[in-house]
Structure formats: C-alpha cells, structure tokens
Simulated assay, not measured.
Amino acid sequence: MSGLLLNAAACAAIAMSAFAFVWTLHKQEYKDTNLPSLWALILFWATIALAFLFVCVRVIAAFYGYTGVDRICYYLASIPLAFLPVSLVFFIVYVVTGDKRASLAMSLIFSAFGIVYLWFLFTSEIAGPEVTYWATIFSIDSDAAITVYLSGLFIVPTAMVIALLGIILARKISKRHRYRIALTLVAISIVFDFILVDAIAIWDVMQVVSRIFILIGVVLAFLAYHPPDTLQDRLGIREIHDEIEVIDG
C-alpha cells in the first residue's frame, strides 16, 4: 500500500475522531457556568476536524496526481489551522479568570495573529507540492509567516497550556477532575505540538508520524471524557461518569 494512502487514512481518522468527540461533547448536559469553556473546546476540536478533512483530500489528490487540488486544499486547510489558537486561548483564559470579556479580548488578539499569518502566507511564494511515497510537502518562502506562526500562534498558546496545567494541578480538586483536566491538556498539547511538526516537516516520513501522534492526541482527549471501565477501576475514578463536566475555574 502506498505511503500516501496511509497518510490519507491517518488524516481521515483524525477528522472522524475529532468530529465524533465534538458530537459527544455537544450531546452532554453541562452547567450554565461551564458553557463558554464547553463551546471553546467544541470549536477547538471542530477546527481540527475541518482542517484535517481538507488535508485528507489534498493527500488523496496528490496520490492521484491532481497537484492543483492538492495546492487548493493546502490553502483551505491553512485557514482553520491559523485560527486554532483562538478557541484554545479563550478556553484557557476563561478557565483561569471566569471572565468572558477577558477571554474574548485575548481571542481577538490571536485572531489578529491568524489574519496576519494568512496574509503573509497567501502573498508569499509557496514551493511545491513535492510528492513522495509518504507525503505531499509544501515549503513556505516567507520568514515573516514562519515568525508569526511560531511566536504568535504556537509558542504563546503552548506556554499558556503548560501554565494552566500547573495551576490546575496545584489546586485541591477531586481525583476524577484532576484526571480529566490533565489528560485534556496533555491531549491538546500533543495535538498542538505535532501540528507544528507537520507544518514544518521537510522529511516525508515525519509528516506521517506527526499525524499519527495527532490522532493519538484526539483519542486521549476522548478518553479524558469517556474512560473505559478498566481504566476507571485502575485509577479509582469510576464516579467520573456520574457527572460529566467541562473544566472550569
């Protein structure tokens, strides 16, 4: 089987798993105070699903030699990925402060970063696609776009995730709540980090490996809210199913 088909299968699995997780979050009942963080989580994972749906199409297009479709889908996928930190930042700020206005203000700042990144991306030269056995790779010939992506769209949100994890784990909370928070943030961190690896991959196998880890991150996020019985028994968190709740402050 071609490595490109394995690549496409990984992308399809990411999209379907993320959509499934979004659906389960949407169907649950939550406290009103948790709704802003709930919708931020839903938007985050829906953005992942949408982006990798486009990525899946572009990999399949590359497999069949449709480089034009590959290029179009590359640009389409870059749009949701550019705004991925927006919902994440809203979620983090709301969990820490409980203030929707502050959360919205910070989200707008990162929306501006996303717009600036897309402007540099769409106005710069994009080399590719370079289609190999494993992957289809584009190269961005814009230092400005790369700088905005790394500084505004990756480093700061990642630091915020790590800080939130430290803050939450320092609090005295129930074991089930600690499990859900820790695993959710670890899942988000894995997904976020390997999306960066995917974006800058110059080695074709690295692209496939990064997408497998992104899939693992999505699965971990699902397990944070729907742990199997054996895991609940082992960790002593069986009561986690008695009350489904979104992480809040």
Rank of each mutant, 00 (worst) to 15 (best):
S151A: 15
W39H: 07
R176A: 13
R211S: 00
V22I: 06
G166A: 00
A18P: 06
I190N: 10
G166T: 00
A170I: 01
I115A: 12
L164P: 00
I195H: 07
V57K: 03
A18R: 12
V209R: 05
E243W: 11
I167M: 10
V148I: 11
L108I: 08
G249Q: 07
I155K: 01
F213V: 15
S17L: 13
S2D: 13
I109L: 15
I173Y: 06
I60L: 11
V208H: 02
A182F: 13
I181L: 10
E243R: 14
I162T: 01
S210W: 06
S87P: 02
A46E: 14
Q28P: 01
L185R: 02
A199K: 03
A20C: 06
A145D: 08
Y179P: 00
I212K: 05
Y94F: 08
D141V: 07
F19A: 13
D141A: 13
I60N: 07
H26P: 00
D204M: 03
N7C: 02
I173F: 02
T230N: 13
Y74E: 12
D70Q: 10
D242G: 14
L81G: 00
F138H: 10
Y66T: 05
L220N: 00
L88I: 05
W134V: 04
R58N: 12
Y64D: 07
M206N: 09
V96A: 06
I48W: 09
I72G: 01
Y75K: 03
S210A: 15
I162K: 03
R234A: 15
V218D: 03
L183D: 08
P129A: 11
W39G: 04
A105T: 06
L164K: 02
G65P: 03
S142H: 05
W203P: 00
T67Y: 10
